[in-house]
């Protein structure tokens, strides 16, 4: 299994998890308030972690005067939905490629086909059921 930016990648390091945990408990915090919770790393390291989190779309930033406030974003849910959509969609893309290869071996079927590429892709849809 590989690591990195994939959704299955290695879990975030302790500091990153702790920052997210603090934000989920307190709602909104400044860098200084977050850094106060750590003894083993300083404000600069916390800022770096916040940037990683922000770039990953997990944390958002709000400026008010000379302060920057950080809080959790809800968009990760949408990222998960988009990941699941492309994951399950990929299984059908693979099937379409195999079907295309199979149809190529049977020219009669292929020539009659309405879509010679064999991948008439429809827009994925999603929703929530209760």
């Amino acid at each position: 299994m590989s690591c990195g930016s994939s959704p299955f990648g290695a879990l975030a390091d302790d500091t990153r998890r702790a920052v997210l945990s603090l934000l989920s408990e307190h709602g909104e915090l400044t860098v200084t308030q977050i850094a106060e919770q750590f003894t083993h790393i300083g404000r600069t390291a916390v800022s770096m972690q916040l940037r990683v989190l922000r770039d990953a779309g997990l944390v958002k930033e709000r400026r008010a005067g000379k302060y920057r406030y950080y809080s959790l974003r809800v968009e990760p849910v949408h990222e998960v939905i988009s990941f699941l959509n492309s994951l399950y969609g990929a299984s059908l893309d693979g099937l379409a490629r195999a079907a295309e290869a199979s149809a190529d071996q049977e020219p009669a079927a292929a020539s009659d086909a309405p879509d010679p590429t064999g991948t008439d892709k429809d827009t994925p849809r999603w929703g929530i059921s209760y």
Binding site: I81, L84, N85, Y88, G89, A90, S91, L92, D93, G94, L95, A96, R97, A98, A99, E100, A101, S102, A103, A109, A110, D112, A113, P114, D115, P116, G118, T119, D120, K121, D122, P124, R125, W126, G127, I128, S129
Partner: peptide
């Protein structure tokens, strides 16, 4: 969470179904 996707393939259903478990390259499902 409910997701839905579809693809249009140029093979009859029986031929598509025959790929199930028999062709490792036919997508992960």
């Amino acid at each position: 969470l409910v997701l839905s996707q579809q693809r249009h393939l140029a093979l009859p259903p029986a031929d598509v179904f025959a790929l199930l478990g028999s062709d490792r390259t036919a997508g992960w499902l």
